[in-house]
Each structure stands twice: as C-alpha cells, then as structure tokens.
C-alpha cells in the first residue's frame, strides 16, 4: 500500500481536525479499507484511526427508548451488548462475516462504506435510525444514496447510530457462503405505529425499503399478509451467484421468514 501519515486521536474533535486535510480518511476496524489500500484502490495521505476514541465505543439504551451504538463499536460487541435490548440487531451483528471480522469491524465503518450486500444498512434503514456525525444528524431515509454512496461528506465521522428499538424485529440473511455477505437480506421491524422492511444485497441501488410489504404488514403482521405481493426483478443485482429474478424471489421469501421469526 502507499504510505500515509497515521493519526490516532483520542477524541472526536481531534479526529475531525485531523480529517480536515486533503486526502485524509477515517479508519475503523480496517476489515474493508486495509485490503482496499493493499490493492491500491485507496491511497489516503492521512489515515485517522477511530478505534481509540472512547466516546465512540459501546451500546446503551437512551431515555427516548432508542439503542445508541458508538460508531467505533465492533460487531461482536453489538452482538453481546444488544442481545437483551434489541435481539433482532444482535442476531444481525452476530452473523456478519466471520468471528475475526466481527472482532474488528465496526458499525460506523459498515455504514460509511455502504456495501450493497452489507447487513447493517438493512437494520439502519428498517429502524429509521439516526446517523449522528461530528457535524450533524442524518435520518437513515436520507443517508443511503446508492451503492457505496452515502450522505456523508469527505472526512465526516459517524460518531453514533441511534435506532428506535422495535416491538419485534428479525433479520433474515440468505448467505453467500464464500463471502458471507448477504446474497439477499431482509430486516423487518415492527413498531406501534407501523412496520418497516429494508432489503440489502438485492438491488443495484443498494439498500431499499419494500413499502408495499410495510403497508400489508402494518395492518396484519403475519407472513401470509404479503402472499399476494410480488417484487419486480428490475434493477436487481445480476451476478454468478444469482439472477435478478432469483433475488426478487428471495426478498419475498426472506420477508415472510423474518415476520415469522420476529421477536
């Protein structure tokens, strides 16, 4: 990889200052960025490590009934600390990649990268999460802007992710067994005032909400409530692992399974 200046700040303010320069980039757990740099597909002049920032670590419940997750919190920590508060999210975190990836990879890194087959974007969109950065708060509905594209500015840091805790939720992932990314994944979240359904791994535009299913499940939270719906294959990902039609089919199947498994 190309050389860089390495900065390891202890506070968000220091990290933000270090990211002011040209070609500066934040580093979370490095499970995506380090291999990308080794391939010279990324070559930041300054790399700012976020993992030593105490205020970006950990999981807690807010007074408003939201789950607050520090941006530098690893998947393994979310799996452990969200287990009783938000089992649907803990279940998602515990099936990302493999154990070594989960011990290093962070929620902020995943959401900032916005891989079209990543798991966390589905949870963030299905819960209507708030992405708090060092500059502002961004609603999940405004945050995801297509494959590997988000509302983040250059050098902007995800400090915290706040997710309203659903009454019931579940994430169903159809595993691509080699990469362990989602061939398709569906997160269903049931709230007192409605249901949200977010799909990852399927669309060429990245994570999206399946609004027809949300309406059907809002009036009847049962798997057969979506039996009459169909998902268009238009714009679905086509690769050697699955056709657009296959992924469209998976969206409906996995949504039904998530509703049945919701807890």
């Amino acid at each position: 990889m190309h050389n860089f200046d390495f900065v390891k700040p202890g506070t968000v303010a220091d990290a933000a200052a270090a990211l002011q320069g040209d070609e500066a980039q934040p580093l979370g757990g490095g499970q995506t960025l380090i291999p990308t740099m080794k391939q010279r597909l990324a070559a930041p002049e300054t790399l700012v490590s976020l993992i030593g920032i105490a205020e970006m670590q950990g999981v807690c419940k807010t007074d408003a009934g939201e789950l607050s997750i520090g941006g530098a919190t690893t998947h393994a920590t979310v799996e452990a600390e969200a287990a009783s508060l938000f089992p649907g999210l803990a279940g998602l975190a515990g099936r990302i990649g493999d154990p070594a990836v989960r011990n290093r990879g962070t929620i902020g890194g995943s959401l900032a990268n916005n891989d079209p087959a990543a798991c966390y974007p589905a949870a963030a969109l299905a819960t209507g999460a708030t992405i708090r950065t060092d500059k502002r708060e961004i609603a999940a509905d405004d945050y995801f802007q297509g494959m590997f594209t988000t509302a983040l500015d250059e050098g902007e840091i995800i400090v915290e992710v706040r997710m309203p805790i659903p009454e019931k939720s579940n994430y169903q992932k159809f595993l691509q067994p080699a990469s362990r990314f989602a061939l398709t994944g569906v997160f269903v979240a049931k709230y007192a005032d409605g249901v949200r359904v977010a799909v990852t791994g399927a669309s060429e535009e990245g994570v999206f909400r399946w609004t027809e299913a949300e309406q059907a499940l809002g009036s009847n939270f049962a798997a057969d409530a979506i039996s009459g719906l169909s998902v268009s294959a238009d714009g679905m990902i086509n690769d050697l692992h699955g056709t657009p039609e296959y992924r469209a089919h998976l969206v409906k199947v996995l949504t039904g399974r998530a509703v049945m498994a919701a807890a």
Partner: peptide, 24 residues
C-alpha cells in the same frame, strides 16, 4: 482477510493479523 491463515489472538479474541496495522 479472506482465508484466516494469519489468525492470532489479541486478549483472547481472534483477529486477522494481515488486516491489523501493528501500531493499532
């Protein structure tokens, strides 16, 4: 970070030593 051959333990937890900068 795809094969796991470089797995080591840090404080008892598995990490991929090829994806961890030594200074971190």
């Amino acid at each position: 970070g795809q094969c796991g051959a470089c797995t080591v333990l840090v404080d008892g937890k598995r990490v991929l030593s090829c994806l961890q900068l030594a200074q971190t």
